[in-house]
Design a protein around this nucleic acid. Structure first.
Length: 256
DNA sequence: TCATTAATCGCAC
DNA sequence: GTGCGATTAATGA
């Protein structure tokens, strides 16, 4: 069954190395100050790495990492929003996390893994910076500061994913939905507390691990209780502290 | 506008 | 809590 994905991945690898040569934003002029590469540009090794950057443009809804495809490198989000998912039981998708501008995608597949264990889909038109596995690997071997920063990043990611396990296993559906709303709010904050990321009920369900119906029920009761304000897919949290109280009794103060 | 897709609700289990 | 199916709302060609 992986035949097709493999073929696609190879095609993809081909097109990224040929068509999208060094163009667009260079790392030096990039405004993503929290990007790992950007932060380490003082090093000559990283500067070398920055030169190998490829830019990839993704349309909304486009999948740029296929589950089970061979690992070809690492992606940084130059601009856009992405969901990272894994296919679960019965082919239902489980959204592992969301990623915003400046974040890294595909790092789990890096190193010993041969194939990506996750898929990634652009949630809006997104521009990615792509670095090949080889050039990244040689930089990591030479530049200890960069490697150290990567390690911190990995440690942090692991911490988050452990928190997520706790959330899923110990909280009720309602609490999980509230937690998800607060997470999206923290991560994709927008003016006047509107969530900066619009998700379908299905996507909320896939993220918190329930059915779409459950999400709908929780959201409409939250709306009745005036804890959220929503019109269609857009959701607003009028009082973040009040919503936080819904889960703070658990003392499990969670992922960011 | 109309057709397709998503959201909602009620109901049985 | 879960899952189906009917109804209604939203979206996009």
């Amino acid at each position: 069954m992986y035949d097709n994905t493999l073929k696609l991945a190879i095609q993809f690898q081909h097109s990224t190395s040929k068509k999208y040569s060094l163009s667009g934003t260079s790392c030096q002029t990039c405004s993503n100050e929290n990007c790992l590469i950007k932060r380490n540009l003082k090093s000559s090794f990283t500067l070398e790495l920055a030169k190998t950057k490829n830019e990839i443009k993704c349309k909304k809804g486009q999948q740029f990492i296929l589950e089970g495809a061979p690992v070809i490198g690492l992606f940084f989000i130059l601009q856009g929003k992405v969901k990272v998912l894994r296919t679960g039981i019965n082919g239902r998708e489980q959204i592992v996390r969301f990623a915003n501008t400046g974040e890294i995608i595909g790092h789990r597949g890096f190193g010993t893994e041969e194939y990506y264990s996750i898929g990634a889909v652009a949630l809006e038109d997104t521009t990615l910076c792509y670095f090949s596995k080889d050039s990244l690997q040689s930089t990591l071997l030479k530049d200890s500061k960069f490697t150290y920063d990567m390690m911190l990043f990995y440690a942090n990611e692991l911490n988050k994913s452990e928190s997520k396990v706790k959330t899923l296993s110990q909280m009720t559906v309602r609490e999980r939905v509230v937690d998800a709303l607060l997470y999206i709010n923290r991560k994709f904050k927008q003016e006047n507390n509107y969530l900066g990321l619009v998700l379908s009920r299905r996507e909320y369900a896939d993220f918190v691990g329930t059915s779409e119906e459950q999400v709908i029920r929780v959201l409409s009761s939250l709306k009745k209780e005036k804890l959220i304000i929503s019109s269609g897919k857009r959701i607003r949290i009028p009082d973040v502290a009040k919503l936080q109280k819904e889960i703070s009794e658990h003392n499990y103060y969670l992922h960011c």
